Simulated assay, not measured.
Amino acid sequence: MQSSLRRGAGGGTGWDKTILVDLWGAERAVHACEEKEIDRFVMISSRGAGDPESRQGPIKPYIVAKHVADRTLQRSSLDETILRPTRLTDAEGTGRVAAYVDTDPDAGDPIPRADVAQAVVECLGRNATIGHAITLYGGDTPIGEALRPSG
């Protein structure tokens, strides 16, 4: 039970949890922020959510739920950033990632949950990430540097 409190549904749970947590819960959070006039939102999505048709197998319902939740956020009045990490691990954070803005490479290293959490905090302080979907893998670039706009 404890692990279900700190994680979303993922690809290994049933449709019911995927819909309730990763779709319905995310949409409710977006709408609640709009109602409370909170203007900034960083969504933790999933690699592949930009193109759910390209995914197959038990992970597909999860990816579709993430895609629809992302679209809800993008269509909202909120200043949004979407983080799309690859496979998450419980390893200790490294403070380093590989970040791909508005692209979704097919392969890369798994990423510690702690590094995704640090990326959320970094995005909240960086208006340059607003309006972007950023795919995250484990990597060698310090998180703050990886999230800086290029050019």
Score class of each variant (00 low, 15 high):
Tyr100Met: 07
Ser76His: 04
Ala128Asp: 15
Glu92Ala: 13
Ala65Lys: 07
Gly125Ser: 05
Gln2Lys: 11
Met1Tyr: 12
Arg87Glu: 14
Gln74Ala: 12
Thr103His: 10
Cys33Val: 06
Ile82Ala: 03
Ala65Met: 09
Leu5Ser: 11
Tyr62Val: 09
Leu136Phe: 07
Gly151Asn: 06
Pro52His: 04
Ala133Asp: 07
Gly25Arg: 03
Glu145Met: 05
Glu92Cys: 03
Gly139Lys: 10
Ala32Gly: 11
Gly95Asp: 06
Ser3Val: 12
Cys33Gln: 10
Tyr137Arg: 09
Ala26Thr: 10
Gly8Glu: 02
Val68Lys: 10
Val121Cys: 09
Ala32Ile: 07
Arg40Trp: 13
Leu73Phe: 01
Thr89Leu: 07
Gly144Ile: 05
Gly151Ser: 11
Cys123Pro: 01
Ala9Thr: 06
Ile44Phe: 02
Ser4Tyr: 04
Cys123Ile: 00
Gly108Cys: 09
Ala114Ile: 05
Leu136Trp: 08
Ala99Asp: 09
Thr72Cys: 12
Trp24Gly: 02
Gly10Asp: 07
Gly8Lys: 02
Asp140Ser: 11
Arg87Ala: 13
Ser3Asn: 11
Ala91Arg: 11
Gly57Tyr: 02
Ala99Asn: 09
Pro52Tyr: 06
Pro112Arg: 00
Pro110Glu: 14
Gly93Thr: 05
Gly144Arg: 07
Asp79Ala: 14
Gly25Met: 03
Ala128Val: 07
Trp24His: 12
Thr103Ser: 15
Asp79Leu: 13
Gly151Asp: 09
Pro112Thr: 01
Ala69Ser: 11
Gly11Asn: 03
